[in-house]
Simulated scan of single mutants.
Amino acid sequence: MKKFIVFFTVFIAACNTTNNTTVDLSNVDTTNPYLVGFYVKYSEICAQFRGSGANNLSIHALKQQYQQNARFKKGYAVNNGTEGFDAVTNLDHCDLAKAVVNKASKYQKIS
């Protein structure tokens, strides 16, 4: 029983830790429609499977802004095949995707 309590305590402590690291966007061109499309879709996948995507209003606004842009559509389509029925792998850059979408939506003066 003691092992269970120790394990449970460590498990709860691990679950409550937060990642307070900031994302460096200096190398990301948030005005490039292809990259914006790529990260919009990536952020949608992060939201669906990890609950950590960008603001839905920002995503929607960017999709409306670029709805006729072929480069945005190509970038968006790159991540279409990464989601499955109930799981997805390699979601290591959700924080980056969220930051890119948020910065792009502010750059485009979309609130």
Rank of each mutant, 00 (worst) to 15 (best):
T31Q: 14
N90M: 14
K73H: 13
A47P: 02
G84H: 10
T21V: 04
G37E: 03
V101P: 00
Y66D: 00
A61D: 08
N32R: 10
T89N: 11
S111R: 07
N102I: 07
D24K: 01
N102D: 14
K109L: 08
K2G: 08
G51D: 13
V23M: 06
K98N: 10
Y66V: 01
N69P: 04
G53K: 00
A99H: 00
A13K: 03
N16Q: 09
D92Q: 07
I45N: 11
L57S: 07
N79G: 02
K3V: 08
L91E: 05
M1H: 09
A47N: 15
N79D: 11
Y76E: 07
F85W: 05
N19S: 04
A61C: 06
K103C: 04
E44S: 07
N55W: 02
N32L: 10
K3P: 06
N55T: 05
Y107G: 03
T17Y: 07
C46D: 10
M1C: 07
L91S: 02
F8T: 15
G81A: 14
E83L: 05
Y76N: 02
T89F: 12
V100C: 02
S26A: 13
I5L: 15
T17P: 01
V78I: 15
L62E: 06
V10W: 09
F38L: 15
R50P: 02
F72D: 00
A14W: 11
Y34K: 01
I5E: 13
F85D: 03
V6I: 15
Y76P: 00
D24L: 07
K41D: 11
V23E: 10
H60S: 11
N20S: 09
K106A: 15
N102E: 15
Y39E: 08
A104M: 08
C46Y: 08
D29R: 01
E44V: 05
L25P: 01
C15T: 10
G84L: 09
F8M: 15
L62Y: 06
I59K: 01
T30R: 06
V28P: 01
L62T: 06
V88D: 06
C46R: 00
Y34I: 09
A99Q: 01
F38A: 09
I5V: 15
Y39R: 01
K63Q: 14
I59D: 01
Q108S: 09
Y39N: 12
C15P: 02
V88E: 10
N69V: 06
I5K: 07
H93L: 09
L25T: 08
D92S: 11
K2F: 11
N32P: 09
